[in-house]
Design a binder for these strands. Structure first.
Lengths: 206, 206
DNA sequence: TAGCGTACCTAACGCTCACTAAGTTTGTCA
DNA sequence: TGACAAACTTAGTGAGCGTTAGGTACGCTA
């Protein structure tokens, strides 16, 4: 058929990672076949095994990559000396931008129910890291004790509600791509931030 | 081996539904095998096919059953003449009670990424119904226009954030079963309700 | 207790899919 | 130009699983 091009290892690997991210996002871990990933990468299946030891290994690397990018993004925009009213919307904006620019990575990262015990274990571990990271960021906010008291778990619960809430909205967004980023950001701020701010206590403006 | 008991059709069917709910909750649609479901029901696989036409059919019926129960629950507790400050916490309490009493049903219902195109379609349809239903309930709240304006989609986004936020917390809860229901309810109210109430506008108390 | 409906079983088919063995082509560098 | 490394291929293998065919045995009713 099409005379396939021979590529240097790094370029082919990059193509495979891109393709795999898309296929995993669309079909989930179990539903994604190595053949489908290979075909979308422009090669046959064994080539994938020249770059990754197994399907699980491939999936794990993609998950970790996305997790690192997301945590880095949160850190960058949520920390700082400005008041929280500035930092929080900016962080949400950055998050939405990431989702917009990496829709497949986001969808793959946010999917649950992989259908494979090992893949599930990796996924849960990565999500737990994200949740704890978010909890740490929240704990740093002034007035966090009104949300969490001294209870570590309360903080984790708040982080989980926010994390999964954002997750769900991101997936919804991929099904409604015409919605502009601005409205996504506004929706998050309305539901989550206003509540957080108020829960922080009476020092919050009206 | 173990002399299996012969049961009337209805009882066996009930056992199969229970078992299937557990297995689907634990392994996802794709990861759940009909053999595993059958074994946990106390029978061999073909018996399952005496009750359900296919794996997809079985899964669909369980999903729809849970959706009906959840929507009924929301309707029952979120409607009424009392002020929203009464109804909302009561509804969250009822939701948490449902999750506590039907942990497997809740986990199965909330799972995403089934890994099968048809199962995924069914799941998305059911989740969309739940989201729209929640949106209708939210729209009924006084001051909803501050959240959604005249935009139908804004309402849907708010509903989705809440829906998926609750979803995530429910799954988290199944991994932390020692946390009492009261704290779960409080976490939801802190993050979600306080924000909603405030977004409703200046008529909200302090 | 004989007969019958049905709850239940064993065995197998056919398909998908992760992964591998072994060989072929292609670009590069002496 | 010719040889060598590496990028790539075809053609499997074996395991898992949804589903079905066909038969067995249990328990109710006459």
């Amino acid at each position: 058929m099409s005379p396939r091009k021979r590529l240097p290892k790094d370029e082919r690997r990059e193509l495979i990672e891109r393709a795999a991210t898309q296929v995993f996002a669309e079909h989930g871990y179990r539903g994604a076949s190595m053949d489908a990933i290979a075909e979308r990468s422009g090669v046959s299946a064994p080539v994938v095994y020249d770059h990754f030891a197994s399907k699980l290994d491939l999936h794990r690397r993609l998950l970790e990559r996305t997790r690192n990018e997301l945590l880095e993004m949160w850190r960058e925009h949520l920390f700082g000396d400005e008041p929280a009213e500035v930092r929080f919307p900016r962080a949400i904006e950055a998050w939405a931008l990431y989702v917009e620019e990496h829709p497949y990575a986001a969808k793959m990262f946010f999917r649950g129910g992989l259908g494979d015990p090992e893949a599930e274990a990796v996924h849960r571990e990565v999500q737990a890291q994200a949740r704890v990271g978010l909890g740490v960021l929240l704990a740093r906010e002034p007035g966090a004790e009104n949300i969490a008291g001294e209870d570590q778990e309360a903080l984790e619960m708040a982080a989980e509600i926010i994390r999964s809430g954002l997750t769900g909205l991101a997936v919804w967004w991929t099904d409604h791509p015409h919605v502009p980023r601005e409205q996504i950001v506004q929706a998050v701020i309305n539901v989550v931030w206003v509540g957080l701010e108020r829960a922080r206590g009476p020092q919050a403006p009206v």
